[in-house]
Design a protein around this nucleic acid. Structure first.
Lengths: 223, 223
DNA sequence: TGATGCAAAACTGTCAGCAGTTTTGCCGTA
DNA sequence: TACGGCAAAACTGCTGACAGTTTTGCATCA
């Protein structure tokens, strides 16, 4: 079945309120790293930047506050959330557990066609990597597609949404070198093969180990 | 070590903004079930109810929107999120994975004193239950204390915070009969014993099964 | 009786402005 | 030069108001 294009985060619906647009733009600014963790932002400046008054900005900031991407103390300027190394380890622990679950579910519910497509895309990307023509990040995409294949809507929203954004904060802080790790391809390939053989337990365990290895590889900066 | 009293959700700090108070009150209203899932609320009415203008209300609503407890379509009144049975199953799947993780971590990091206290409280509560003098919910408390014992701050915030509130929506919708199940005590007791013997794998597996049993017991209403 | 259309009421989205607080930048002093 | 202190600037928290949209309730008609 063709899946319904993920979440309710429809990018730029035709009738989006000003607050919605500011929310989208602000989120992007944070994920892209133009707004760095710990940085204070001013409602007024954001308002002029986005061409509206402070009302919609306030709303967007509140929404991001609900997602813990922005923190705000009374009477102080809102700050982009700051993620320490300890937080990343903890978030990765949760990610390992949840992506493991996603794998187990995907092994049961993902369609043969989707698995085959994932497999061939993975091969194609690997070939392109060897040829030096690929610079997108397959890491994220493989994980995202498996999460989507789990059929668990909340898992997708959280793994590919909230948790992804939270972790992107730290990526910015630590030099941002995503993937490009030769072993990752093998691990991904093994996972996909477990999916194809519908071995949920194996897929889960492979994915968990895959992410736990990523924890071990976290940069050891201690700011 | 005495833990630092959980999150940044300090209830009623002395210098709380109006928006903060509305946020707290509104959250409580939803969790307590006075505002039922799917119900439309009016900013203006909330504003008069809480004795402020629409600004702070709008902010609180946005924050709850960020936590997916409230949904809002353009130009329409905000609605309390509506959780269907399928959603609950999916959320419980995630809960099983995460509480399993919490158990495994707690088996490593929880102090002997905390485990002993949990054990004796569990016994005391069980005795009170038999005597008919207990009507608080131990279910939640055991789970909450194990989550806290995991030492993973984000796990606590999500399990005892966001996820708990989300699931409370459905509890309201389905007759709300939390726990009071005799077998649960045994299962809790087994889990705590696994914690005491520092057997993380066993604790994890016991907790996962414990919650999966709860999934199987979910009411079969299909609204 | 039951469906339909319409006007009034209610409500959301947004803005400009005011009061009170924090931050900034400068000036005098040691 | 380095250090407080103070006034101006910047900013948050909140309010009331206005335009445009949705909902409500009534009256009309088949």
């Amino acid at each position: 079945m063709a899946q319904k294009l993920s979440t309710d985060m429809d990018s730029a619906s035709e009738t989006a309120s000003h607050a919605d647009r500011v929310y989208e733009a602000l989120t992007q600014l944070i994920v892209d790293g133009e707004l760095t963790p710990g940085m204070a932002v001013s409602e007024a400046q954001l308002a002029t930047r986005f061409g509206c008054s402070r009302g919609p900005v306030r709303e967007a900031v509140s929404r991001l506050q609900g997602q813990r991407l922005i923190v705000q103390a009374p009477n102080l300027r809102p700050r982009i959330a700051s993620i320490e190394r300890g937080d990343v380890v903890q978030l990765f622990q949760m990610r390992a557990a949840l992506e493991g679950l996603a794998c187990r579910l995907a092994a049961e519910t993902m369609s043969d066609a989707d698995i085959a497509a994932l497999e061939s895309d993975l091969e194609r990307w690997h070939a392109a990597l060897k040829a030096g023509t690929a610079d997108d990040i397959p890491e994220l995409d493989v994980h995202r597609r498996i999460a989507a294949g789990s059929g668990n809507r909340w898992l997708v929203e959280w793994l590919s949404g909230d948790l992804y954004r939270l972790l992107s904060l730290y990526r910015r802080k630590s030099g941002d070198r995503p993937g490009r790790r030769p072993a990752a391809h093998d691990e991904h390939w093994q996972i996909v093969r477990a999916l194809r053989s519908r071995d949920g337990d194996l897929a889960e365990s492979l994915m968990t180990s895959h992410i736990e290895r990523a924890i071990a590889r976290l940069p050891h900066l201690d700011s």
